[in-house]
Design a protein around this nucleic acid. Structure first.
Length: 499
RNA sequence: GGUCUCGUGGCCGAGUGGCUAGGCAGAGCUCUGCAAAAGCUCCUACAGCGGUUCGAAUCCGCUCGAGACCUCCA
């Protein structure tokens, strides 16, 4: 068994994964901001790190997977006007931020289930950790790396940079950062433009606010992740994941805060997934080109030619390497839809063959084919170990498809494979397809009554065909097709169907 | 403007020095009452120009093009 190699954004190279505490892995992934609906772009990190979680668990590590819910900040919802926040209205008329947060958290969880993502071990909320964040800010003040200004607290980047490498993660030079001037609100409160907020004093109309030693306010943009990661994973933990767009300033700032508070760099392996693009451009709020997950699953969006099943989207994501951009298009999703179906048809064929495994012996009837199957299967582990290259894993499995289908169609004799090889094949396909990649068949043909009705129709059709009554047999098949059920005549005279 | 990344066949997308990635689409064939599916075969690309090398999609340089980050952003 080879070693797992992970591309570490911090060192810009692939490194052999060695957990800080043998047998255990701490992993933190930046979760959603629940002020709105998740879109296709958000799906990528959650699917990517779900596979990371699944694989590390498979390797036998006890993984604590922490993914936060950002539910603190400046919250508004479209359609509910800003005036709602003003206190002259009755309580039930006003925008209640927690109501919003609850709504979008529920929707997020629903989407994660659609993707077959395993839920994290801990899913901490920012609002539930205000105390921890305040404590951390106090510590930063005590260490002399933060300062208060008009009820807000800022991190002193210049001071930090004089001793530590601010910009190491994102490849930035501190001089450039200090030169870059930005026209932002509250800039004059900062000693330096590069400083970032740890605590912000809340203006009167701000709806989310907490009492702090510096007055009423709310936490800054980066502190929640540092506080919660430290609390649940310790001062040093193994993996921190998130989108590439978070590398700077979010993750860079996390490193700075944690380093000062905990007197050690927080993360051993930084992992960043690349963006999903649309027409070559990043999908994002500011570009106005997002496709929400609810729209994607329903097909209800002007850019969509049809609805796409969540499993198709998962498969689409896993067909690329997570560090490459992935370009959305209807054609690309349709290709994934067909590919996924072909893959799972073959997988189900393999399961049927498994029932006949008793026919096999220790001898392979076709040594070359047997060797090819073994090679394709044995290579899978190396691919997943190479920085989670699910694209290569799936490509190899696709090469196994014609072999499995050939056996099923009897153009290849079953006993071409030895019993060992077949068992290896079936075990590894289940492991990689279902357990590690987390894929499932799209067909939901598990309704018992429907099955019985279909069996009845198949019986009638078989009778009609035996009488050469093709009018009746075609009618059954064509009408089923029109309601979305495909009936196929197999080579051995049986019929199969799929939705 | 600064920093960085990328440019692969009709589309998506692996791949970092030598061997057909893979998927989808397309063409032909086989099977079949027909259809669908499946199997077999074909389509063999690496932005351009130089350079390094026995050999480059892969390394170096330049040119062109696209994008990301520098601001909330997966």
């Amino acid at each position: 068994m080879g070693d797992l190699k992970i591309y570490n954004s911090l060192t810009r190279q692939k490194e052999t994964f060695e957990p800080i505490t043998p047998g255990y892995v701490g992993m933190y992934v930046c979760g959603p901001t629940v002020s709105g609906e998740s879109h296709l772009g958000h799906a990528r990190p959650y699917v990517t790190f779900d596979v990371v979680y699944r694989y590390l668990s498979h390797l036998g590590y006890k993984v604590r997977y922490v993914r936060n819910i950002t539910d603190a900040g400046h919250f508004e919802e479209e359609g509910r006007e800003a005036e709602d926040k003003i206190s002259s209205k009755a309580v039930l008329e006003k925008l209640e931020p927690m109501e919003l947060v609850q709504k979008y958290t529920n929707l997020f969880h629903w989407a994660m289930r659609q993707f077959n993502n395993i839920e994290p071990s801990i899913e901490p909320t920012a609002t539930g950790h205000i105390v921890e964040q305040i404590e951390m800010i106090k510590k930063l003040l005590a260490e002399g790396y933060a300062y208060e200004s008009n009820g807000s607290v800022y991190f002193d980047v210049k001071k930090y940079a004089s001793k530590y490498d601010y910009g190491k993660l994102s490849g930035r030079k501190i001089e450039d950062l200090l030169e870059t001037t930005r026209e932002l609100e509250g800039q004059e409160e900062k000693r330096d433009a590069a400083d970032f907020a740890l605590w912000k004093a809340a203006p009167p109309q701000h709806i989310m606010r907490w009492q702090s030693p510096w007055g009423e306010g709310f936490p800054g943009w980066h502190i929640e992740c540092s506080a919660m990661a430290t609390k649940y994973l310790g001062k040093q933990f193994d993996i921190h994941g998130g989108g590439m767009d978070l590398q700077f300033p979010h993750h860079e700032s996390e490193i700075a805060q944690s380093t000062i508070c905990n007197h050690t760099a927080p993360v051993k392996y930084w992992m960043h997934n690349n963006m999903i693009t649309i027409n070559g451009r990043k999908m994002g709020k500011s570009y106005n080109n997002v496709i929400k997950l609810t729209e994607l699953f329903s097909g209800n969006h002007p850019l969509l030619s049809q609805a796409f099943h969540p499993m198709v989207v998962r498969f689409f994501i896993l067909q690329s390497q997570y560090r490459s951009t992935l370009d959305f298009s209807n054609e690309a999703l349709q290709a994934s839809e067909k590919g996924l179906k072909r893959l799972f048809d073959a997988y189900e064929n393999m399961l049927k063959l498994k029932e006949r495994v008793g026919e096999l012996t220790d001898n392979a009837g076709d040594a070359d084919l047997d060797a090819k199957v073994r090679r394709l299967v044995m290579e899978l582990e190396g691919f997943i170990n190479d920085d989670f290259n699910t694209a290569k894993v799936l490509a190899n499995i696709f090469e196994l498809v014609p072999i499995i289908n050939g056996i099923k169609d009897k153009t290849v004799p079953f006993n071409a494979l030895s019993v060992d090889t077949f068992n290896l094949l079936s075990a590894q396909l289940k492991l990689f397809l279902l357990d590690i990649c987390g894929l499932q068949s799209v067909t939901e043909a598990d309704n018992e009554k429907l099955k019985e009705v279909m069996n009845l129709l198949i019986e009638i059709r078989k009778e009609a065909r035996s009488r050469k009554d093709f009018v009746t047999s075609d009618k059954i098949r064509n009408q089923l097709q029109s309601i979305g059920i495909s009936l196929k005549d197999e080579k051995d005279g049986t019929m199969s169907w799929s939705i």
